[in-house]
Simulated scan of single mutants.
Amino acid sequence: MNASFAGRCMRQLAVAIVVKGLFGLMPSACAEEPAQKVAAVAALTITIDNFAFSQPTLTVAAGTKVTWVNRDDILHTVVDETKSFKSDPLDNGDTFSHVFDRPGTYTYFCSLHPHMTGTIVVR
């Protein structure tokens, strides 16, 4: 925890105690730093290039955010076969993200080029 973050939390805690008279109250802003680090770790990127997904099969933990980025000069989409997630058409440089909350196997494809397929396995 850096010094400015700790100082900010201590000031917020002191104000909360004085204003609300509640001891042990932790302002929500103080809990954000660890959550941000966890979110940053649980994020993966799949590139779309040369009419293919860079990782045809990817295994992740539940709660992982997967981001697809289009590196082709043509539009592509990312669509789950069961329609649990679906991107708009992605132009070059565009991204689409989905957080996989539940365990299972998710097979996805590009609706504009159905031969492009991939699988996310969530444990």
Rank of each mutant, 00 (worst) to 15 (best):
T95P: 06
G21E: 02
F85P: 04
S111E: 05
D88K: 10
I120L: 09
F51P: 14
F100R: 00
V78P: 03
A35W: 06
G63H: 01
V79H: 00
T95G: 04
M1Q: 09
R123Q: 08
H98V: 13
C9H: 09
L44N: 14
A16I: 07
F85Y: 02
S4K: 15
F85L: 10
E32H: 15
M116I: 06
K83V: 09
T47G: 11
F96M: 02
F53Q: 04
R71G: 12
F109V: 05
H98C: 11
V19C: 14
R102A: 14
V66D: 07
L58P: 08
F96G: 12
V78S: 06
T45R: 00
Q12G: 10
Y108P: 11
A43E: 11
D72P: 08
A39K: 03
G21K: 00
K86P: 06
E33Y: 13
N2D: 15
T57A: 12
N70M: 01
T105A: 05
K20T: 08
A39V: 14
T64K: 04
V79K: 01
T59S: 14
T45C: 13
K86V: 04
R8N: 13
P114R: 04
H98M: 06
T119Y: 04
A62V: 10
F109P: 07
T59D: 11
H115M: 09
L25H: 06
A40I: 09
N2W: 12
I74D: 06
A43Q: 15
T117M: 04
A52R: 02
R11A: 15
V99T: 09
L58W: 00
L13H: 08
L112T: 00
I48C: 13
T117N: 06
